[in-house]
């Protein structure tokens, strides 16, 4: 009886995932074509068009957020694993990072709006990059720390014993040993913010035309999906499905890669 219930629960959990994927592939694949990747959205009533501007916009925003989030996140992780191990400060930072991870993305959006958009006086790709970058920091910090903790002490001691300065040993020995894990951690954070919509609404605003200026409102894939999904036009709905399919393919690839790397045990040689 009880095991039956547990199995039933498992099936009920898998069901929505299967439903979402089947529907995405069914609806998305039929609307996905070359034009989707090469054209910008057509006005209402004209069929066709694509999301080229949104894809490029997303890439720009994500590049900006990575420039901000990856170095700070990795450095924070290095501090937690290499310098602060077991100290009160490190525990407090670890705790804060976990808590920050749970702060809703929309709150980040408002904060960046008040911090960047309002003083500047206009929406911009830069503001979106800041919002997403801030969201990447706690995730990357925690995964970097976990990966560095797996590096055995003998390797650090060997480096120090050869007379390598500590900073050099951390950067070229410890960090390098753990780099596959850290890279996958970064990709996971990247995949997570790639689908974020809420913080982009009032930082990058969206744009129906070509723009690559980071000081101007710019289109972003999730934002465009949102705008098209709540519109009443069938053509736009089809574009939204196609966009969602592209987004989910990117994310599934990232997650599978992460799983492949971590399960293959790239870290095995180190630990």
């Amino acid at each position: 009886m009880a095991s039956g219930l547990a199995i039933l629960a498992t099936i009920l959990v898998i069901l929505p995932l299967v439903a979402i994927f089947v529907y995405l592939i069914y609806m998305g694949a039929s609307s996905l074509n070359l034009a989707f990747f090469t054209q910008i959205p057509k006005p209402v009533g004209v069929s066709g068009g694509g999301m080229a501007n949104a894809i490029v916009g997303s890439a720009i925003i994500l590049a900006l957020s990575s420039i901000l989030g990856v170095p700070i996140g990795i450095s924070g992780g290095i501090f937690l694993a290499e310098f602060g191990r077991g100290t009160k400060l490190a525990n407090a930072i670890r705790f804060t990072a976990d808590v920050l991870n749970g702060v809703p993305s929309i709150v980040m959006g408002i904060a960046v709006y008040a911090l960047v958009v309002k003083p500047q006086g206009h929406f911009s790709a830069f503001a979106g990059g800041v919002a997403l970058g801030i969201m990447m920091i706690p995730t990357i910090t925690r995964t970097t720390e976990e990966m560095l903790l797996m590096v055995p002490h003998a390797i650090r001691e060997a480096a120090l014993g050869l007379g390598v300065p500590n900073w050099r040993s951390v950067l070229s020995i410890t960090l390098k040993t753990a780099s596959p894990g850290i890279i996958t951690g970064c990709m996971l954070a990247f995949a997570r913010v790639a689908g974020e919509t809420a913080p982009l609404i009032f930082t990058v605003l969206g744009n129906s035309f070509w723009s690559t200026n980071i000081n101007q409102p710019i289109a972003a894939l999730p934002l465009q999906i949102y705008v098209f999904a709540i519109s009443p036009y069938d053509d736009w709905h089809r574009l939204a499905w196609a966009g969602a399919l592209v987004l989910i393919i990117l994310i599934v690839l990232a997650v599978s890669l992460v799983r492949y790397v971590t399960s293959r045990g790239v870290m095995k040689g180190a630990s």
């Binding site: 924070g76 310098f83 490190a90 709150v107 408002i110 309002k118 801030i134």
Partner: peptide, 30 residues
């Protein structure tokens, strides 16, 4: 170099506190 590196890492780690405080104050003020 060692001291500098260490401080750089500490500052980056402390930025997590700073983010929380910054978000809080900005929201309160706005």
């Amino acid at each position: 170099a060692d001291g500098g590196f260490r401080w750089l890492m500490v500052i980056c780690a402390l930025s997590i506190f700073a983010i929380v405080v910054l978000i809080g104050t900005v929201l309160v003020r706005s």
